[in-house]
């Protein structure tokens, strides 16, 4: 463990907490993409299947369970909660998210470190996570008013893999870790997709004005 990965995990955890806070206190999921949330459920289920095959640490196990549980919980709120589901921007959240799953899986079958079920699933989860934010970013562009909780949630979610990039650099030099191109490039793509968002988020923060993404 290093400070970058710890900060990344905390940023990720905090983003989930903020999202749940928004949904539970305002009883609204306006501006949140259900498609992105569902893709994240698939990401976590595919990546954390190793809960059954390998134990790393108490922290590792707890965090995996927390991410799986919270991601399912969020999807449940948006799909089935009597009040929350009515605030879902169904007409704006139009990304055909199922479409990205087969190509990511196919890529994992072709490009991986090792051809085993667990490894391919892990690899698939990295490729899928790299693009999972797309529905949310598109919805954001169509949303008139981006509330603070939503903006902060997305910022923290984007920051987490950015911090992981620093973690990988650290591990490569300090721990003499092997080159893990698949993780690095997936993480880079994932973070790069936030570039636009980061720019407008920081700009709105500096100018103390409402966050707005140009169409």
């Amino acid at each position: 463990m290093n400070i970058f990965r710890l900060a990344g995990d905390m940023s990720h955890l905090l983003s989930v907490i903020l999202l749940l806070l928004k949904i539970r206190t305002t009883k609204s999921c306006a501006g949140i993409s259900l498609k992105t949330q569902e893709l994240y459920v698939v990401v976590f289920l595919a990546r954390y299947l190793n809960l059954f095959t390998r134990y790393y640490s108490f922290y590792n196990t707890v965090m995996k369970l927390v991410f799986i549980a919270t991601s399912v919980c969020i999807v449940w709120y948006m799909r089935f909660h009597k009040v929350v589901k009515q605030t879902y921007n169904k007409d704006l959240d139009t990304f055909r998210h199922y479409v990205v799953i087969p190509p990511c899986f196919l890529l994992a079958l072709l490009v991986h470190h090792e051809f085993t079920v667990m490894e391919v699933l892990w690899t698939f989860s990295l490729y899928l996570e790299a693009v999972a934010i797309l529905p949310q970013l598109i919805l954001l562009q169509r949303t008139r008013n981006i509330d603070n909780l939503t903006g902060n949630y997305i910022f923290l979610l984007g920051a987490y893999r950015a911090l992981y990039l620093l973690n990988w650099i650290y591990r490569f030099f300090m721990e003499k870790a092997q080159a893990r191109w698949i993780s690095w490039i997936s993480g880079l793509v994932q973070t790069a997709l936030y570039a636009d968002f980061f720019y407008y988020y920081i700009k709105s923060w500096k100018n103390n004005e409402k966050l707005k993404l140009p169409a």
């Binding site: 995990d9 990720h12 190793n50 790393y56 640490s57 590792n60 991410f67 870790a177 092997q178 893990r180």
Partner: peptide
């Protein structure tokens, strides 16, 4: 657990 294995990450 080898520190070379990034599978210990989330």
């Amino acid at each position: 657990v080898s520190s070379n294995d990034v599978k210990d990450e989330l």
